[in-house]
């Protein structure tokens, strides 16, 4: 198992190097004079000089790359050209919002998708199966932001059931240590605010979770149908096990395997989708920050966000693969 993890970690190295080259190139292929392209309206002779110094624009290209690589590894991910705030500091204040949203969407998509998929599999070919298949088709066919806008109109504007903007009541005052409000409100002992956070989280989670929901439903359905036809499931029944045991132990323990992999792959889509969702729900996270950065031509922010999201994606999938190996004894012992 340890060897498996080491092998997976080593395999990630070329990908990380490729990623760094790509993002290094990103800042340098901006058309025109880099100073104009990067600093735009924020340029002053001093700022220009500082930028040239910082990016090492006067050095040969390979030296520039090495210097970028070393800085990145040491945790220096650049700074905003608008307000000179270092990326990392600002990112850390924004990221909890995105984590909360992503986790909300994951809980929604897994919590609803797996039961739906199992239900559809149990009723293969029936009307319920058709309905669930239709819903998941709709889920992958509706853009996050269109669904988001629709939810805002229906549940926020027309019905007025749920808040549609922000992460928490703007007047709330309490100690937000971690930035993850679900945790902070609980630690502050403010159950009322915790409920408020959950209410704020519902619509954005549904909007962001709709695509993963559809995909998880489909893969669960397909996987359960396949496993249910396996010989060992028939064996389990022939032993006189309760139907519930057959389902939970014999079918699901095997059907999980493809589902876990797919869930891991959804994380990339969720981080990307967060950009749009946060925009629709005025959600204070990395996504909205990136959108602001695009508007302000704050390219170093865009560059480093891409880097960090890609690294998160790689780490999550590494964890998922290790989890897969743990669930699957055939791999575990190799």
């Amino acid at each position: 198992m340890g060897r498996y993890i080491v092998r997976r970690l080593l395999a990630a190295i070329p990908v990380l190097i490729g990623l760094s080259i790509l993002l290094f190139a990103y800042i340098r292929i901006l058309p025109g004079d880099p100073c104009v392209a990067i600093l735009g309206q924020h340029r002053t002779p001093e700022a220009c000089a500082a930028l040239r110094e910082n990016l090492g624009l006067d050095l040969p290209l390979w030296q520039q790359y090495i210097s970028y690589l070393l800085k990145t590894i040491s945790g220096d991910l650049g700074a905003s050209v608008v307000n000179s705030q270092p990326f990392v500091a600002e990112f850390l204040t924004r990221f909890p919002g995105t984590i909360e949203l992503t986790i909300g969407a994951l809980i929604f998509s897994i919590g609803v998708g797996i039961p739906l998929g199992r239900l559809a599999a149990r009723k293969v070919g029936g009307w319920l199966d058709g309905l669930i298949t239709g819903v998941s088709l709709f889920g992958v066919s509706i853009p996050v932001f269109v669904l988001g806008l629709a939810l805002v109109v229906i549940f926020g504007v027309i019905l007025g059931w749920l808040p549609t903007q922000g992460r928490i009541d703007a007047r709330a005052r309490f100690d937000a240590t971690s930035g993850i409000l679900l945790v902070d409100t609980l630690f502050a002992g403010r159950l009322d605010l915790f409920v408020d956070v959950v209410r704020h989280l519902i619509l954005p989670s549904i909007a962001l979770g709709s695509i993963p929901l559809a995909i998880i439903t489909r893969i669960t359905r397909a996987s359960v149908i396949e496993v249910a036809n396996e010989d060992y499931v028939r064996t389990a029944r022939s032993k006189g096990l309760k139907e519930k045991t057959v389902d939970n132990r014999h079918v699901m323990r095997n059907a999980w395997l493809p589902v876990t992999t797919v869930v891991g792959l959804q994380v990339g889509g969720l981080l990307g989708g967060a950009v749009l969702t946060e925009t629709v729900f005025v959600w204070n996270g990395v996504g909205r920050w990136v959108v602001d950065a695009i508007e302000n031509h704050d390219y170093p922010i865009v560059q480093s966000t891409i880097l960090v999201f890609a690294v998160i994606f790689l780490i999550v999938n590494l964890i998922v693969d290790v989890g897969y190996a743990l669930l699957n004894p055939k791999i575990r012992y190799q």
Binding site: D231, Y232, R237, K239, L241, E243, H250
Partner: peptide
């Protein structure tokens, strides 16, 4: 179904053809 379940395995047991696929691989 519940009565039949109690018969299966305890009064009538079965062995199937392919031992490769008849046992659950993850248990």
């Amino acid at each position: 179904e519940e009565e039949l379940r109690q018969v299966r395995g305890s009064e009538i047991a079965m062995i199937f053809q392919d031992p490769m696929t008849s046992l659950n691989p993850v248990l």
